[in-house]
Computed example of a mutant assay.
Amino acid sequence: MREIIGGLIERSDSMDQSAHSDGEAGQTLLDASHCRISFFDRGSDKLVITFNSMGQILEDDFGRHFFKSINISQINVACSPKDFFQSLSRDSFLQAVGFVVAQHTDVVIYGTSLGGYAAIYFGSLFKARILAIAPRLPIHSYMEGLRSYHSDIELVHTDLRQMNSTQNDVLVVFDPEDEADSKFVSCFFADKNNTRLIALNGAGHFILKQLQIINMLGPCIEGFVRSGDFGEGAIDISAFTQPRRARAESALKRGDLAVARIEIEYLMKVRTGHDPFMTPWGLIKQYVELCDEIDIELPHILPTEYATLSRRMGQPSTPQKMMEAIIKHNYLTCQYQACLSLAELACVRYPESQIAQAYVEKARIVVGKIGPNQFPD
């Protein structure tokens, strides 16, 4: 029998099997146009409930390979792009996963970015430990004024400030220097006695990528799941990035492009800090120029940015196409000053590029209306 619950289709008498390329079969607890919940039974007493972050799709299962490797059962909750989990009600979520949760003695709810918000929102239904890394909700009014704010999408969830659950132990890991994530913490956790905050200054929003680069991601997540210990005392991001920054800058100054390229590739993957020299798009711009000057093909870099560009514009195969893709991306994400600067540079380097010429005009119009002082560095 299929029951219609809050606009979602739940299979209550049987669960579909969905096989992955590595042979692991997941049981579908809920399947709908905007939401999918899958269960991976690995026979453990512990259960981790994970939530996808922005950029993932319904078929993605956040952290599945990792939790499979440490043999911990998992429920993954995915939403379609631009849904922000708003199609999933708390009642529908509870009805879909409640019977599985009841079979486990220790439950951890985990997510990052949008998934971190969802972990907090839905995790309050259970007596569970919650790990939210760089939580963010781009459709909430606290994001107003930031370029990732999606005011056109309706927020139907109850505001976190109106939810007074005290049955959870919540750990929030964030960078106080990241404006959006810092706003989230100050807005929703000012008076929460059951919440512990870990501040990783300079880590930026993509903390998981940072921890992965310095080989701390697995130990931190597994430590929290097994014992509640995130192991933050062992994290020193700056020790890994500052020497790389110095070497990249020195190599650029002396014209050693091969060394500069290696260091810049590393730093782009880490995406750390707020130094204008090391902003993500500034680094990509320098990288494109380096690839152009030393005449090499673009390797598969930047898992996040490269995937975004590839999905929207196809895989750039030359420095010119990469630069044109970045120009478009800057414009689409309202980074008009960056778009204008890079488009003007592209017109000099690639005078035949009609894309660059078109976006010079587009960006000039917008910058002329708003003014350059309204844009971040």
Rank of each mutant, 00 (worst) to 15 (best):
Q212T: 12
Q212I: 05
I213V: 07
I213C: 07
I214W: 06
M216T: 10
M216L: 15
G218F: 08
G218W: 06
G218L: 08
G218D: 08
G218H: 12
P219E: 13
P219M: 14
P219R: 14
C220M: 14
C220W: 12
C220I: 10
C220D: 07
C220P: 01
C220R: 03
C220Y: 12
I221D: 00
I221N: 00
I221W: 01
I221P: 00
E222W: 01
G223A: 05
G223K: 01
G223V: 00
G223P: 04
F224P: 02
F224S: 06
V225N: 06
R226V: 14
S227H: 13
S227L: 05
G228Q: 07
G228N: 07
D229W: 09
D229N: 14
D229C: 11
F230K: 08
F230M: 06
F230H: 08
G231T: 01
G231P: 06
G231I: 02
G231L: 02
E232C: 07
E232H: 11
E232N: 11
E232D: 14
G233A: 09
G233I: 05
G233E: 15
G233V: 08
G233P: 09
A234Y: 06
A234W: 04
A234S: 12
A234L: 05
A234I: 02
A234M: 05
I235F: 02
I235Q: 00
I235P: 12
I235D: 00
D236E: 02
D236W: 02
D236F: 05
D236V: 01
I237S: 04
S238W: 07
S238K: 09
S238N: 06
A239P: 03
F240I: 06
F240E: 05
F240H: 13
F240Y: 11
F240L: 04
T241Q: 01
T241I: 07
T241V: 10
Q242A: 13
Q242C: 10
Q242H: 13
Q242N: 13
P243S: 00
P243T: 03
P243V: 02
R244L: 11
R244D: 02
R245F: 04
A246D: 13
A246H: 11
A246P: 05
